[in-house]
Simulated assay, not measured.
Amino acid sequence: MLKEFRSFIARGNVLDLAVGVIIGASFGTITKSLTDDLIMPVIGAIFGGFDFSSYFIRLGDVPANYTGSLSNYAALKAAGVPLFGYGEFITVVINFVILAFMVFLLVRFVNRAIAVVEKEKAEGTAAPAPDPEDIKLLREIRDALVNRPAA
C-alpha cells in the first residue's frame, strides 16, 4: 500500500494539483486585497458608505452587557447578535467574480500559448517542399562536371 501511495504522489497530476492549490491560495489573497482595498471602497463611496462590507440588518436583540457600537458589524457578530450581513455577502460575490474573471484570462492566455506552440510544432514537422526544376538541373550539371574525366 505504501508503494502504491508513493507512485500516486509521484504522478505529475498530483504535484501539479498541489502547486495549483498553493498558487490559488496566494491568488485568492491578492484578489481579496484587490476587492477589499481598492474596489469596494470605490463602490462604497458611490453608494454612500466607505465600508460596504459592514452593511447589515440586525435580526435580534443586542445582549444587555454589550458595550460596543451598534453599527460595528464585526463586534455585533462577535457578541452573538443575529445579523443579516448583505454587505459582506456582496463583497464575497464581487471577490468571486473578480477571481473567476482572472482565472478565465489566465486559462485563455495559456490556451492561446499552447495553440501557438502546437502550430509552430506542426509547421516545423511538415515535409520540405520539393526542389524546383532549375535547382535539379543545376545539380545535374554540377554532378556531371564533377564526374567528368580530367583532360
Rank of each mutant, 00 (worst) to 15 (best):
Ala144Glu: 04
Ile30Asp: 03
Ala79Cys: 02
Arg58Asp: 02
Pro63Met: 01
Asn111Trp: 06
Ser26His: 06
Val97Asp: 03
Ile98Trp: 02
Leu2His: 08
Arg11Asn: 08
Arg58Ser: 05
Glu133His: 09
Phe27Met: 12
Ile114Ala: 14
Val117Ala: 09
Tyr73Ala: 10
Ala115Gln: 14
Ala122Cys: 00
Arg112Trp: 11
Glu133Phe: 12
Thr125Cys: 12
Ser71Ala: 14
Ala126Phe: 01
Ala122Thr: 06
Leu105Pro: 03
Phe47Glu: 08
Phe8Asn: 02
Ile135Pro: 00
Ile9Ser: 01
Asp36Arg: 12
Phe104Thr: 08
Gly87Leu: 00
Val103Asn: 11
Pro41Glu: 07
Gly24Ala: 00
Arg148Lys: 04
Asp61Arg: 11
Ser54Phe: 03
Met40Asp: 01
Leu99Met: 15
Lys3Gly: 05
Thr125Ala: 06
Ile98Asn: 02
Leu83Ile: 09
Ile46Lys: 07
Glu123Thr: 02
Asn72Val: 07
Lys121Gln: 10
Arg112Ser: 15
Thr31Glu: 09
Ile141Asn: 06
Arg112Lys: 13
Leu106Thr: 15
Ile90Phe: 07
Ser7Arg: 10
Arg108Gly: 10
Gly49Asn: 14
Leu17Asp: 10
Phe109Glu: 13
Pro63Phe: 00
Thr67Trp: 07
Gly80Cys: 00
Arg148Ser: 04
